[in-house]
Computed example of a mutant assay.
Amino acid sequence: MTMSSDTSKSKADAKRATSASVPAKPEPTRPQVLKALHVGSGDPLLLLHGFMLSPHCWEQTAARLSSQCEVFAPAFAGHWGGEPADGWSVDIHALADRIEDQLDELGWRTCHIAGNSLGGWVGVELARRGRARTLTLIAPAGGWHIPSLAQLRTCLKFLSLVPVIQIGKRLGGFAINNPVIQRLALLPLSKNAAAVSRRDTAAAITATLNCPAMLSIIVGTARGPEQEDLSTLQTPVRLLLSEYDRVIPNRAYARRYLKELPDSADRIVVHGVGHVPMLEAPDRIATLIAEHVYASRNRLRAV
């Protein structure tokens, strides 16, 4: 009888010990707001994120570039982490003005610039102002005439997100951390959702739900003015087009970039990635940026 009692007690103790040794699964948490990412040392490199996103999308790429460059990735005005954007209409020039102010605060008269989507469009404007040593455009927006059918489709595509965003705000943390919702959110942003970490996906969703200037920027970019002829750019340019871009597909939206950029510009299709390739292929994007940065100095360095 005693032996049986001791055996039961030992099993109970062993069960408690096993339970104690297995750490509890951490609860998902909301990503922290990020006003700007500033890491590394070396050549100054400005990274500009896309519409309704945040500097979080650059974290992995910036980490890979930080051994060779001083990387600065700010949040756009009116976006999550950025300064408030004044007025009911915010255009590319207004966004570029604030980025210029930040460059002046850093003491960067010129820098290398890489921009994704809206960030690419702003990067072109900064290059026209003489602020870019090199320019890497990653699935850049703005490759349409104003007015045009392509421009109208783009505006309607983003306006259709308004009710979805309102629902997401009501769902709160559930919308940010739910695996099913995360997969759905990645459909327009990536080709291979499994390659994107849950943390990066949560940050992308949080940024989308917290973009107060969404409508102001849609109105501002719709009203124009449109981009000037891209053939006048004096900055060395590398154009990176995502093979599976579902937001602004290459066939309809990359024509101006492909046609008008100077013959000296690189034109590269990045295979197997979506509209925000830094999320699923940070190594490849870092390498392609670094190659362009250092080719401009007539020497090669490994990333």
Rank of each mutant, 00 (worst) to 15 (best):
C155D: 11
C155V: 13
C155Y: 12
C155F: 04
L156V: 11
L156E: 07
L156F: 04
F158M: 07
L159Y: 12
L159A: 12
S160E: 14
S160K: 15
L161Y: 15
L161N: 04
L161K: 08
V162M: 08
V162A: 12
V162H: 06
P163G: 13
V164K: 02
V164Y: 11
I165D: 08
I165A: 09
I165V: 13
Q166D: 13
Q166H: 05
Q166N: 08
I167Y: 07
G168T: 11
G168K: 09
K169E: 08
R170T: 10
R170D: 06
L171P: 08
L171M: 15
G172K: 03
G172W: 15
G173R: 14
G173V: 05
G173P: 03
G173Q: 10
F174P: 00
F174M: 10
A175N: 09
A175C: 14
I176S: 03
I176L: 04
N177A: 15
N178R: 09
N178E: 05
P179E: 12
P179D: 05
P179M: 03
P179Q: 05
V180P: 00
I181G: 00
Q182Y: 04
Q182T: 02
Q182N: 02
R183K: 11
R183Q: 13
L184Y: 02
A185H: 06
L186Q: 03
L186E: 02
P188C: 08
L189T: 02
L189H: 06
K191T: 12
A193D: 12
A194Y: 04
A195V: 01
A195H: 09
V196K: 06
V196E: 06
R198Y: 00
R198S: 15
R199V: 04
R199Q: 15
R199C: 00
D200N: 11
D200M: 13
A203G: 13
A203Q: 01
A203H: 09
I205R: 07
I205M: 07
T206K: 06
T206I: 04
T206G: 04
A207V: 09
A207S: 14
L209H: 05
L209Q: 12
L209E: 03
L209F: 10
L209C: 10
C211N: 13
C211S: 14
A213E: 02
A213P: 01
M214R: 15
M214E: 01
L215A: 01
L215T: 09
S216H: 00
I217T: 11
I217G: 01
I218N: 07
V219T: 01
G220I: 09
G220M: 10
T221Q: 10
T221H: 12
A222M: 12
R223S: 14
R223Y: 06
R223H: 06
G224T: 04
P225V: 14
P225I: 12
E226Y: 02
E226P: 06
E226C: 13
E228M: 08
E228K: 15
E228L: 10
E228N: 15
D229Q: 06
L230F: 12
L230K: 12
S231C: 13
T232W: 01
T232Q: 13
L233S: 07
L233C: 05
L233Q: 07
Q234T: 14
Q234M: 14
T235N: 10
T235K: 07
T235W: 08
P236T: 03
P236F: 09
P236E: 05
V237E: 08
R238E: 01
R238F: 04
R238C: 11
L239Y: 14
L239S: 11
L239I: 11
L240G: 05
L240N: 05
L241P: 02
S242K: 00
S242H: 02
S242D: 04
E243A: 15
E243P: 03
